[in-house]
């Protein structure tokens, strides 16, 4: 049963990933990426990682989809046809679908598969990973920490330093987004631009704003116009 579920989920994951690679509509790519996250959450559940599945379902399928949609509302939702290649601003060339990335990917994949041949078998209780610190965590948590969920105990107590660092990274990411997306409005008397934001009327992020997405031709023309402006 578990095996069947794993195979099914892996097949769906592969199909969704190929779908993301294939589609030229960014909106459907975002939805497919959300499905990919959700399927991987299912796979985590099958693999007994309930906490991870929980996080992946909430983060990957929920919040990150919203972030992607908010971005698409700002940048438009179409991908340019892959046959056209821009080398200079004035010209566009038609190029064949590039083979080189495919070769790189196949070679890398083959090397990685060769590497897995030395890995311990899947799911064996005697694998090296299960013999290092894990037995101590599993045996001592009940006495030392008194918390039934071992994942929480390791996360917050045994490996509290890690989690403090990760929390700081998350906070730093928010600082980065604030610096990138805050609007620079006024210059002070020294001519420097202070960081700031201003109150906003309302929000129509996503669905409505996505519809008038630019056609690829328009986008090219727009890009050229912009570049000519820059050149003059």
């Amino acid at each position: 049963m578990e095996l069947v579920l794993t195979f099914l989920l892996l097949a769906f994951l592969g199909a969704t990933a190929l779908g993301v690679a294939k589609t030229r509509n960014l909106f459907s790519a975002v939805v497919l990426a959300g499905i990919f996250s959700f399927l991987s959450a299912g796979l985590f559940t099958v693999m007994d990682a309930v906490d991870v599945a929980f996080t992946e379902a909430a983060v990957g399928a929920g919040v990150s989809t919203v972030f992607y949609l908010a971005t698409l509302a700002l940048v438009g939702g179409k991908v340019r046809a892959p046959e056209i290649r821009i080398t200079t601003v004035k010209e566009k060339q038609t190029a064949r679908t590039p083979r080189f990335p495919l070769v790189v990917v196949v070679v890398t994949g083959a090397i990685l598969i060769y590497g897995t041949l030395d890995m311990p078998p899947y799911g064996e209780p005697n694998n090296p990973i299960h013999r290092h610190v894990t037995p101590r965590y599993l045996e001592e948590t009940d006495e030392e920490i008194g918390v039934p969920n071992v994942v929480t105990a390791v996360l917050a107590s045994y490996r509290g330093y890690d989690t403090l660092g990760e929390t700081t990274v998350v906070f730093t990411a928010a600082v980065g987004v604030m610096m990138l997306l805050s609007r620079l409005k006024k210059r002070d008397e020294l001519g420097e631009e202070p960081w700031g934001e201003e109150p906003v009327e309302s929000l129509d992020v996503g669905f409505g704003a996505l519809e008038p997405s630019l056609e690829s031709g328009d986008r090219l023309a727009e890009g050229e116009g912009r570049a000519e402006e820059l050149a003059t």
Binding site: A49, V59, S64, V133, Y137, V151, V154, E166, V169
Partner: peptide, 18 residues
């Protein structure tokens, strides 16, 4: 199952979305 990878990946997912 081994809880250690769970802990590492749990935090990595949230860092990844950030």
């Amino acid at each position: 199952s081994n809880p250690l990878p769970h802990v590492l990946i749990l935090t990595a997912i949230v860092v990844g979305v950030s």
